[in-house]
């Protein structure tokens, strides 16, 4: 088990360094970062001055090393637009994104797991068909469109919920649904498939043969085993969702890290963009690592792979 964890940890760290290099290289995709920063109207001397000021005249690998070294200490440089340290800027915004992510995954689990279980217990029933429809529709629904429809219906027509902002918990309801719906299909399909698989296994037959009542069979024997892969999928989806929150946050004007990313990209604020890509990647890496470890802990067969 320890060996497995160390191996996965090593891989995660290696992935993290590679991602950090890629997100740093984005700066050089435009060709000359100093010219991009100075703008089209700047004179040659201004561009040169900026180049020296930001150290763009040094070799790229030296700049990367410098950036990485600072980043490891929590210093991501200064935002071109806000003229504030990127780290504090992101720290201010991250809580909104985290709340949204946790609410989203909770919503997805609370709706998808029961639906998946019921669908598996009664295959081809009406509930199974509804579950299938929700999952197929969910995969095809453009999240920005879904968000706008919810705003039109629940915020404007019915007036039940606020359309945008972060002031109260009610502001988070619609964004949670949009973000959570994105993760629902995968969780539901996996729960349903897992339950179907488990329900046809020998130990369920044994449990039934012993005379255990159906509720006990379902929850104590079947769901406990079927839920294992769902737990790790949820962790992975959580990582994906934080990265996907950029669309949801921009629709509902939630001023979280995703919104900051959108603003920074539109304003060419590259230090902030680099840091955000790195941070969202780190979340994904940490969540998948936790999912792997959790999986191995729950299911010893996974430790060998």
């Amino acid at each position: 088990m320890l060996q497995f964890i160390l191996k996965r940890l090593g891989l995660a760290i290696l992935v993290a360094f590679t991602v950090s290099f890629i997100s740093f290289s984005l700066l050089f995709l435009s060709g000359d970062p100093a010219a991009a920063l100075a703008g089209e109207t700047a004179s040659g001397e201004d561009v040169e001055a900026l180049r020296r000021l930001y150290g763009f005249d040094r070799p790229m690998l030296v700049q990367y090393g410098d950036w990485l070294f600072s980043a490891l200490q929590g210093d991501f440089g200064e935002s071109y637009y806000f003229r504030l340290p990127v780290a504090s800027l992101i720290a201010d915004r991250l809580s909104v994104t985290m709340i949204l992510g946790v609410c989203g995954i909770t919503f997805a689990l609370l709706t998808a797991v029961p639906l998946g279980v019921v669908a598996a217990i009664r295959p081809n029933s009406i509930i199974d068909r509804i579950a299938l429809f929700i999952s197929v529709a969910g995969q095809a629904m453009p999240s920005f469109w879904f968000g706008l429809i919810l705003i039109v219906v629940f915020a404007i027509q019915l007036g039940w919920l606020p359309p945008s902002g972060t002031a109260t918990w009610r502001h988070f309801i619609l964004p949670t649904i949009v973000l959570g719906y994105y993760a629902m299909p995968a969780i539901m399909r996996l729960t349903r498939a897992g339950m179907l698989d488990v329900l046809s296994s020998d130990y369920i037959r044994t449990a039934r043969a012993k005379g255990a009542n159906e509720t006990r069979v379902m929850f104590r024997h079947a769901l406990r085993n079927a839920i294992i892969p769902v737990v790790s999928l949820a962790a992975v989806q959580m990582g994906f969702m934080l990265g996907g929150s950029i669309v949801v946050e921009s629709i509902f004007a939630l001023h979280g890290a995703g919104y900051l990313a959108w603003e920074s990209i539109a304003r060419n604020d590259l230090p902030t963009v680099q840091a955000l890509i790195l941070i969202f990647s780190m979340f994904y890496i940490v969540f998948t690592f936790l999912a792997d470890v959790l999986n191995a802990w729950l299911d010893p067969r996974m430790r060998t792979s």
Binding site: V15, V19, S30, A36, G243, G244, I246, A266
Partner: peptide, 23 residues
């Protein structure tokens, strides 16, 4: 496998937006 892991760790929407904005 390593490259797949790296790719999955990068947030698609964010990276795509950033690259499109730059180019």
């Amino acid at each position: 496998t390593f490259l797949i892991n790296v790719r999955l760790a990068m947030p698609v929407v964010l990276v795509a937006l950033a690259v499109v904005a730059i180019l």
